[in-house]
């Protein structure tokens, strides 16, 4: 199978398969979590603070007082990686074309130089947090297979995308195919790994913020 054939498979059946598995998993897990069924809360709210759930979604992304100093690598590394990844995914013109091809929505892309810088920053941040995780005895103890898997599945698309764009290896077509396939793998396993936080984070934060507000600790 040549690089172009692999690329064609990745753009066709591969994408459909990954999208189907990913979407199936996401819908299944969201539905399952929602249907777990908490008992109805009949208690009167201690304070009326509308929007606490929504505010918590944002506020939980900010470090609690003192934490930025205590764990700078975790916070700064996390910010640089997540923001960098968002710029790469939603700012690179070919990525926007993919989204347009799938969902019909589009927006202007960013210049390649900017996207390139974001990619380098995201890769560097990922490597830094990996070293942090490996060298910190507590983090290392807390890390399981799922954590290493999530890191690898996220890192490979960034690396292959960067290598393809810069022709770091001989065959651009093959690298592009591998890049798309690595993203498809990420998409397919996303609902069944810790990567599901991409979706569940918003649900969990909203719920925590909302219930905390009812108990009088509004965000």
């Amino acid at each position: 199978m040549s690089g172009l054939e692999l690329l064609t498979w990745a753009r066709g059946p591969g994408l459909a398969l990954a999208l189907a598995i990913g979407l199936f998993g996401i819908v299944l897990r969201v539905f399952e979590i929602q249907a777990l069924g908490r008992k109805a809360d009949f208690a009167k709210a201690r304070a009326i603070t509308p929007g606490s759930g929504w505010r918590t979604i944002v506020s939980r992304s900010l470090p609690p007082p003192g934490m930025l100093k205590r764990a700078p690598l975790t916070y700064l590394g996390g910010y640089v990686f997540h923001i960098g990844l968002a710029i790469v995914v939603f700012g690179f013109a070919p990525h926007i074309e993919l989204i347009r091809g799938l969902f019909g929505i589009r927006w202007p892309g960013l210049p390649n130089l900017f996207v390139d810088a974001a990619t380098v920053a995201a890769i560097a941040a990922m490597l830094a947090v990996l070293v942090g995780r490996l060298t910190d005895p507590v983090k290392r103890l807390l890390s399981g297979f799922g954590d290493w898997l999530a890191w690898t599945l996220t890192f490979v698309p960034l690396l292959t995308g960067y290598a393809a764009f810069h022709h770091l290896m001989e065959n651009y077509t093959l690298l592009l195919a591998l890049h798309i396939l690595s993203v498809e793998l990420l998409l397919a396993v996303l609902p069944f790994t810790k990567l599901f936080h991409v979706v569940s984070l918003f649900m969990a934060r909203w719920y925590n913020g909302d219930i905390a507000a009812k108990k009088g600790v509004a965000a």
Binding site: G12, L15, A16, A20, L23, F24
Partner: peptide, 17 residues
Amino acid sequence: ALSMPTTNAQKAAGIAA
């Protein structure tokens, strides 16, 4: 475009959802 799907991936996605 080279990054766009070549098949009707939306149909598969709809069925999967």
